[in-house]
Amino acid sequence: MSEKTEGRGLARAVPSERYWKPRSKAWVAAEGLSLAALLTVNLLMPTVQEVEDLPYRIAVSLGLAFLAGAIVVSIFNEKARSRLYHHAQFVFALALVLIAWDLVTEKSDLLPLPFFPSAAQILQVIVEDYEKLLISTAYSLRLLVVGFAIGTVSGLATGIFLGWYRQWGYWVFPTVKIMSVIPATAWIPVAMIVFPSSFGAEVFLIVLSVWSPVAYMTATGIAGIPKAHIEAALTLGADERFLLFKVAVPGAMPSIFIGIYTATGLSFATLVVSEMIGAKAGLGWYINWAKSWSNYAKVYASIVIMAILFSLVMDLIFKLRDRALVWQKGLIK
């Protein structure tokens, strides 16, 4: 998936190699067979629930086609070959899990509906209700972007200010500290009163959830800049602006990014909860709305879309961090 997942603490047997699983054709064959079995089971076994299986079958077939394509490419491309071998075991296991899921749901009714729909049914919902889901996704994304942007910028400004000016830090930093332990969602009742529109209240909650960790980590990062760096800059003729923006802020970047990705996780939680309370659209609202109809397939559909959306946002944050902190490459770890 992403270029540099190393920093995220995935355990690795051989640190320097990204594709370390056995380079075995047998596993690739098993991968292909398991996907084929998945398709066959779904096609041939009688279905006891009322489900439109077509989207699911198309998706699995696409998976098989993708694998065939990857095999062809891997004949010519060494990197694609390494990747193919590396992921074979995982896809194999994934296919087995999906087969099991299929068997205990729509093929046998073993797990009760509506709470545990089959994968096919979730996909069916996504396809049938795509319009509403698309609008919900757009609403959530808009809320996230606006709230995250305001929260990050104000958090950075607060943190830089409090980290740099000791006197201000002394008086105001405790507030940041307190705010950072209170979940933003605890302010929901207050937000609903203070803001006339539900969108305003939701933005406020996300800003709050992003602001405090960013401000906290920025302030500690700036205050913790080694004195030696400041002194070196001073003997080179630095003024305060240079000290702050060319020494303190770049030096605090590692800490700032810890704040930013803590905030990212918190903002997702805040987004979903705040959309569940007052909103008229959004993925959180969609979950709540589907729940009131006891349409659990729709609940899962919204969760699947969240998973994809939030992973993409997280990946983007990590990419930005890797770019901003190239100078750390190989320094820590």
Partner: peptide, 14 residues
Amino acid sequence: RGLVFQQANLFPWE
């Protein structure tokens, strides 16, 4: 008054 420090003391991010 320029100073060359005993430890190189370079900026690690530059």
